[in-house]
Amino acid sequence: MRIIIPIKQVPETSNVKMDPETGTMVREGVESIINPLDLYSIELGIRLKEQYGGEIIVVSMGPPKAQEALREAIAMGCDDAVLLTDRFFAGADTFATSYTLTKAMEKLKPFDLIICGERATDGDTAQVGPGLAALLGLPLSTFTSRIELEDGCIKATRLIEGGYEVLSLPTPALVTVVKEISDPRLPTLRGKQKAKKLEIKKWTAQDMEADTAKTGLKGSPTRVVKTFNPKVAREGKLIEVKDEKTLAQAVDEIISLLKEKAAI
């Protein structure tokens, strides 16, 4: 099996600090990490490789620094890595990103499966996986929580609103996966050594014959026109339960709020 896994380097958001004056994110000292939701796609890829053999190529679009994320994926057990890096790629929205990644995938053909994380934790759109499938004309399963290979088809279980549904996809196909699909492993020592030595391929727009009118900020049909702080309209009432009386008061408050909100 030849598996391609697109990944993204994102800011570590678990300890995001907001500037109380300006309300913007403090970027200084913020570490860059692999998008946490990409760890599940990487793990799935490695498990499939262990079961069926083959190779995994990780691909990322970003500045030269993004190769750190690719090396981490190699350390976990992926085989090869390509970094799509070019000043023409900067500022891409999901359309331009889908287009640029599509050009890379075309160059990496043939493959059996593309696995994407559900979404990246910074942009939080979940749009690039489906976009990539659409541009490549690949059968698609999103929000996938389990896959099995059966007679050359992929049986994908999707987590949807009312439960799960099971799809059968011919290959090559693209799946986007949720956390339930796997439990990511830690990089191994051998993997780390390999990652250190590996020469990461770097592809520019020209290398992929990408039309730069469709990449980066220039190729992006959407623009952020304004950012602002979310309204904090929370009442923030606190009741401390110390005894029977405050306990009763706390429960009263909950009930009256539920009544007010027509929840009961």
Binding site: V128, G129, G131, F143
Partner: peptide, 21 residues
């Protein structure tokens, strides 16, 4: 899950922009 699958799949084919959520 429907909208977040159908819309990005459709938008890129139409080469138009899409804003999520």
């Amino acid at each position: 899950t429907q909208g977040r699958t159908l819309m990005p799949y459709t938008a890129v084919r139409l080469q138009t922009g899409l804003t999520a959520d």
